[in-house]
Each structure stands twice: as structure tokens, then as C-alpha cells.
Design a binder for these strands. Sequence first.
RNA 1: GCGCCCGUAGCUCAGCUGGAUAGAGUGUUGGCCUCCGAAGCCAAAGGUCGUGCGUUCGAAUCGCACCGGGCGCGCCA
Length: 583
Amino acid sequence: MKKQLHDLVLTALEALQKKGALGIDAFPAVHIEQTRDPTHGDFACNIAMLLGKAAKCAPRALAEKIVAALPVCAAVTKVEIAGPGFINFFLAADAQLSVVQNILQLGKDFGRSHLGQGKKIHIEYVSANPTGPLHVGHGRHPAYGASVANLLEAIGYQVHREYYINDAGRQMDILAVSVWVRYLQSCGIALQFPNNAYKGEYINDIASQIKQKFGTALVRTQQQVVTHVPDDSIENQEAHIDALIDNAKKLLGADYQAMFKIALDSILDDIRDDLLEYGVKYDEWFSEKKLIDSGAVKHAIEVLESKGFIDKKEGATWFKSTEFGDDKDRVLVRANGQTTYFASDIAYHLNKLERGFDHIVDVLGSDHHGYIPRIRAVMSALTGNSDTLTVSLIQFVTLYRGEEKVAMSTRAGEFITLRELRKEIGNDAARFFYVMRKADQHMDFDLELAKSKSNENPVFYIQYAHARICSVLRQLIEKGFEWQCKQGLEHVGSLVEPAEQQLIKKLSQYPEVLENAARHYEPHLLAYYLRELANDLHAYYNGHQFLVEDANLRAARLNLICAVKQVLANGLSLLGVNAPGSM
RNA sequence: GCGCCCGUAGCUCAGCUGGAUAGAGUGUUGGCCUCCGAAGCCAAAGGUCGUGCGUUCGAAUCGCACCGGGCGCGCCA
């Protein structure tokens, strides 16, 4: 409908321009919007006000010219000029009725489109370091990333979902040593647990796995373990753990890698499992270590060098990111010969490009925002434009237990896991809750509220609307009726109640909401829409009986609520939330 | 110090990317079940959109300054 009106206005403008009645060469994009106030009609256009100045003509006078030039259209019953120069369109009462039929015919496909033209999008989300289980602080990333991926797919992109496994850094060595020390302790070696090591209970679990597999083969004396290791005071704790890592590698040789792998696999399996239960799937789990081992970092540096963006100074190799607006150049290879994390990230992004993706989406924690100019610089250097990359920042969730803020630390092992949260409030509530708010906005999460009074969560409100409709359909059978879809479509014109008109209008907005949410990577728009649709349904339900005696009206109303049911289910599924038939 | 994000009802947040009288949820108050699920509906109260300039027909939205909050500024990852 919007598109139709848009075209009407455009034809009018072109006609006027041909006659020279506008006195300008070009005009801005025509924008049609839905009105808020019904006295302003169904749709409005502001083009006359935008053009007023350029055309040297009062907006209202210009609006009159445009209206006069509008082609006739059966769906439009009235056009008014209002306020400072709005052109308001009033639609025929039955102009939007076809949406019901449309929904019932298309079913699950209603709302989907081909706007993305099958272009390939790579989206990476979560990619949490595999140093421990996911906790509630992580929960927002998978909920957001998976929803955005679904949305993009729904508007016709070919989406590749990926988890980048940071399995190559120092953090992983700290993990391995944490496990080893716990293992040694359990074997009776007297050792202080390092301040900087991972303290969670899961470390003990992995340590006992190691013990089962290796017996006492990895045991070394306390003397050997702490040789040349500085004390674990606040100033020395980094050096302390690094020295322990060195000793572990020397003392264990090849067994160190075996232990490392067991720890990594154990945690990764847990994360994979956790996300799967959460309804979050990936097409690929991409290992940083494998990337590095394949020589990709060297390759990436060579590519940049061939384009002239590499500098060598002070013993290190630099990427000239300042040429693309970054504050300073960045080191890729340190003076000691080691490559930086940034270097492998460049290699990773180059790899994404080489895999043939048209667009790349990185979902990052908002604490990484300082990192964006660097990554953008890389994309510019590699592709010549930085538009191939979209970075979505996810703000941190502040946890509350009632009034009290909850401190979280992976290292200290003080956290509520995502799994615990899901068990308490359910996957649906968790998925919906995390995605309800705009992602780059801070969010408060009150655990007590979410756990104890989960009924207040809006996801139940929406699911309830769906369940209610299902219940009506069950009642229908019990009363010995049948759903006559065809009959209902023939009498769709009898849906004249305000609540019915409101629902139809809301239903017709769904494809647009979907497109908007997908284009802007903002699933919360869909969440809000679904809440509104549920609200309209509940209001309708309260005010009107569906299973009435009049068979024609009954069929028409059933069609309407079935259409609502379909759209609720479609929308919820994009957000990874179930649409239950009863609750 | 420099950079990025944010400030909207008591609280938690939307606001269709510049439109008409700024909206939801929750909380408060009052109404609605002989009727398909009351986990629901309806109504009322609640606002200098952080402050001040500016841009224009028109600003919560864009620009600048200030105040207040969060985050980031490594040859860490």
C-alpha cells in the first residue's frame, strides 16, 4: 500500500516537473508514512513541505498542485491537505482486507522477502573466550546475533553464522595452568592457587578428567613447579602466572598440549551444548589456532604489504591504520617476533573476504568500540571501502539481585551461568528479554524479578495471545463447528468493528517491521511490534465473541485470529521463542 | 587529557532515522468474568524529552557548548 501511494505521488511529481510547474531539476525521495492520528487519514506525505523552498512556492499551494496531478486510484477514497502542508490519504475500508487472505495463504512465509537478493552475509557473534562456561553477561550476544541472523535470512540474504574460537592466546595457557595446578593439588602437591588463574568449580572438573586420563603422569614436585617463579603478590601476579606457564610447558612437553586440548574441548563442548539448548545455531566454529597454523597471518601481512600499508620501524611491523582515520598505527609483529591479536584478527577478516562474502557483520561487546576504527581501517585497506563491514555493539547487562548489583568475574569464578538462568526463567523468557532492548543500550537485569515473577515478562503476554487463539480453535471443534476458511474470505468485509480494523492494520505492517528490523540490525523493533499485536488481539478477544451463531461472521473472525496466530508465530520464531498452543 | 555511547513518566524502556497533541510496560487509583483462558481488557493520574544556544515551515531526533553517567585509549587478548 505504501509503495502504491509512493508511486502515485512520484507520478504526480514527474508530471508537474514535465510541465515545468515545479521549477526545479530534482526532488528528494518521496516518503510515505503511516499516520498516528486517524483524523489524519491512513497515510501521509510530507513532500510538499520539503519542496516548498526549492520550488519557491508555499507548501500548501504546492500540495494542492500535487494533489491535482495525482492519478486516480481505487483504494484511495479521499485526499486532504492538512497542517503546514501534509498530504493525507484516506483509504477505502476494504483496501487492506486482502492481508488476511495473504497471511493465510503464505503461512510461514508471510513477511519474508527477497530484498537481500541472495547476497552472502557472514555474521559472527558470541565468540566468547573458551576459558569457562557462558554466564548471564554473555546471554545477550547469542540472543541478539541469532535473531539478527534470522531477520537477515528472512529478507532474503544467504546467512553464514560463525563462532570464532579464541584458542590461541595467553588466556588459554592460563586456563591450562589453572587446570594443572588443581590437578597437582588433588594429587597431594602443596601449591598455592595463583591469584590470576581461573577459580571456577569447572576447573576442578576438568582436573579430575585429566587425572582419569593421565593418572599421576603429569605430577611434578612442588620444587619443580615453582622454580624461578616470582611470588604471587599484586605487582608480580602477571609474571607469576607467566612463569608457571613456562615451567608447565617445559616440564610436561607434549603432554602439555594434550592437557590443553582436553581443557579446551571440555569447555567448548559445554558452550556448544549450552547455545544449542538456547536455540542458537552456527554454521561453523572457526579456530583461531588453525587459522594461524595455516599461515594466514603471514599471508595477510603480505597482502597489506603489497598494497603499501605496512611499515617497519622500532624493530616491529606496523599496519598504517592512520591512513584510514585511526589515531595511530598498530603493531602486527612485535619486536620479539610474536604476532599480535590484531594481526590474527586481520587474517581472520581477510579470510572472511576470501571466502566470498558480500557483507560481514561483527557482533562485539561495547567495550571493544575502541577497536572498531582499526578493523574498519583494515577493511578499507583490503576492499577499498569500509561499508562491507557492519559492527554491532552490545552493551553490558548490569545484573541486580533486587536492589543490589551483582559483581561478575570469570576469573574469580563468581558468576551465574547462562545455563542456570535458562533453567530458572526458561529459554523463551531469556531469549526475549535479552532482545527486547536496543542492543547498544545499557540494560538492567533483575535476577530476582526474572526468576521469581517471570509472569511479568512480556514474552508470556505474547505467548498467551497465541495460546488463546489455539484455545478458541479447540473450542470450535468442541462446539461441533468447523473452520470455513473460504467462507471467511468471502465475508471478510463483515470485519467492521474498530478492533478488527485495528488488527488488520497492524497485521499489514508486519512485513515492513521485519524489513526495518533486519535492515537496521534491530530485533527489538520486532519484539515491540509483537507486543502491540498481542495487545490488539487481547483487546479484540475481550470485546468480541468469535464463535458466534452467524456462520459467515464466525468464519471471517476465525480467519482474522488465525492470521494473527500465524504472524505471532512467525515473529516469535525469528526471535527464537516458542509459540505454544497452551500454557 | 582525547575518542565513542548514553541522559525521555516514580522505575525499566520505545519513539518508524526531521513531522501534526512525545508513547508502552511496571507501579498507583478506579471500573470489567451467568460470555471462546482475568497470565486478560478499559479508564484516570503521572513530562521544562539533562541544561543552554543554533540550523528551519517544524527538533526528543541534526550541530555546537556545558552538566551528569558508562566505556575505550598497550609491541594485552
